[in-house]
Design a protein around this nucleic acid. Structure first.
Lengths: 345, 345
DNA sequence: ATTGCATCTGAAATCGATTACAGTTAGCCT
DNA sequence: AGGCTAACTGTAATCGATTTCAGATGCAAT
């Protein structure tokens, strides 16, 4: 069977088949209520028959939009971010917007490429899961302020100039410490994230606040770590072992840190929670299946992504011009599992 | 300080500033060698001065392309996929193409939305990490074959109609079994992936092939599992415990399965590798930090993503019209860690 | 019957870049 | 000098949809 080399049907083809003008077809597809019922049916039928699919480039050109949202992720390999991404993605898909993912910490990405993605020629809006970008961003936007709306999710910019959606990191850290204290721990240390990171600051602040409230000891040398990654926790394990006076519990700024820590301790004959209680932050999937199952602070990941997406949509549609940037803070939850235990036993 | 409400500069503005026509600006930006040196410099200077950024919608409309690549991922939350994504993404970013990620197994995604993303109105090409889509895909493309080029990565379509880039799953499974046999195991079981999945089939085939080659026993009831997820492994743990005659080693079709398995066994007082050797597949980041560190088969993830991206670029650019679909198979690697041990001890 | 109004539809401009084609200029050759 | 070529550059058509504006139609009210 031979087939005519079917060209891709355009709006005019649909119009011809339906016996109307291209304008009417466009109306049926975009503002159906403005078209009379019989006409509308004819157009819909023609759309079906021709197998018409809209050309997004043409629509976007005319509408002066790009039809896509850029999401800046500090590390795609981190499962914590992928879950948030899922929430973001679902929300925008429903609105017919593409989600373009960009990993800001990929090894050989030139910084000008990141800037390229920030520009409004690339997207109708930006969600950044990376709080570190604003320096480059502001430097650039000073020159020409043609940036699309930006929302920070999870992390945020230190100056607070942009709207953000985040978990209650301060309170989460506080809950973690209070949990440990409730188990009897008096010497509590902290495995921090990367220096300068807003999450690192917020969690450390919550942690120290709780320590003070409880009247516990707080030592400089009990603050270890320096990144959210597995290996940071592993390195800290050795440091903890070498400590003259060791804390009996460690609050880790991420689940990954906790895994690295527990794993390296285990290798050195130190067992959690027998010799040390450990609590994480994030509650990534594997936390419940680690050995021991990890006690942690759960962030509402999907919800976080969805909230950021909704907020960005509001900004894009101009529904949120009110001066002060919105700052949405979602509650976190303590999930008690097996990595924390009574002390002394 | 007041600022003129600067409109976004267009190619005509650049042309005016440079004292040339829009066509020349376009040429400088796209085929610089066709423009005389002084003109080119003037245009580049004007581009800088005006802060011109190209309007991608306009370019794509004229070029009849979309400028984006859709990547279909079965589950973004799985860290294995995100690593591949990183490889894909980097490659396309270098070619000025957007990567649009779409999670095919998101709970409430209507199937027609997936089809929407398959269409060439949405992208210049597709990379699918999900082997399950071709049924819907073919049904649809029968009606109108206006699909952009598709490459499968990691998974592939069962009919082999499409080009693909994948790891050597058969050989990986074989290596896993041989490793276990070399440690003295004679009764080896398998925790499979979801039924019907191409990876499930390939890995099972490799596994059974190795078992036969080695002249080992193969029992129906030693094949457990049914998904690549953590919980599938956890369920299988209970089934293994309930077995009258238990295999002394299990080859898991994914690292996640292995984690779920080991975790649930541990909870029931069964220790790996003391009571059972376990080997996984994938080598996701956390594998090296699990307790015990997981012996597994490593897939070259980033490389896999990059290879798929390159192959797709070849197809898009029409460099690969040769009849038979390309099938690139990348080697895997056995990574021996602590979850497998000599048997009997 | 005429006017007025509401409802619907079509013609044409428009979005911003690319590129085929044609025109200009300078340089070279005979 | 005239003609020819090569090297650039400009004009204008084009990509495919949206939307403004105005025209057409039908109905109700006077």
């Amino acid at each position: 069977m031979r087939m005519a080399k079917t060209a891709i049907p355009k709006i005019k083809d649909v119009a011809r088949v339906a016996g109307v003008s291209a304008a009417t077809v466009s109306r049926v597809l975009n503002h159906p209520e403005t078209v009379a019922e019989p006409t509308r049916q004819a157009v819909l039928e023609a759309t079906r028959r021709t197998g018409y699919r809209i050309n997004l480039a043409a629509r976007n050109l005319r509408r002066r939009r790009t039809g896509s949202i850029v999401v800046l992720v500090p590390n795609l390999g981190n499962p914590f971010f992928s879950a948030i991404l899922a929430g973001i993605e679902m929300t925008f898909a429903r609105h017919g917007l593409n989600v373009v993912v960009f990993d800001t910490q990929q090894p050989d990405v030139p910084p000008e490429l990141v800037l390229e993605y920030l520009h409004n020629s690339r997207s109708d809006g930006i969600i950044s899961l990376d709080g570190g970008i604003p320096e480059t961003l502001l430097k650039n936007s000073g020159a020409r302020s043609s940036l699309p709306p930006i929302i920070f999710a999870c992390e945020w910019d230190a100056n607070g100039d942009y709207p953000s959606v985040r978990a209650d990191n301060f309170e989460g850290a506080r809950m973690a410490v209070r949990h440990l204290a409730a188990l009897g721990h008096r010497k509590i240390g902290h495995l921090q994230g990367p220096p300068g990171n807003v999450l690192t600051e917020a969690r450390r602040a919550g942690m120290t606040a709780a320590i003070c409230e409880l009247g516990l000891e707080l030592r400089r040398e009990w603050f270890l770590g320096g990144s959210f990654a597995l290996e940071s926790g592993a390195r800290a394990a050795i440091e903890w072992i070498d400590l003259k006076e060791r804390p009996s519990a460690l609050f880790c700024a991420s689940d990954q840190i906790a895994f690295g820590l527990i794993s390296e301790l285990h290798r050195n004959g130190v067992y959690v929670p027998r010799d040390l209680s450990v609590i994480g932050f994030d509650d990534i999937d594997i936390a419940s299946r680690f050995i021991p199952p990890l006690t942690t602070i759960r962030q509402p990941r999907t919800q976080l992504g969805a909230a950021a997406a909704e907020l960005l949509l509001d900004h894009i549609e101009g529904r949120r011009d009110t001066g002060e940037p919105v700052r949405e803070i979602l509650p976190v939850e303590l999930v008690v599992r097996g990595s924390t235990a009574q002390w002394p036993q």
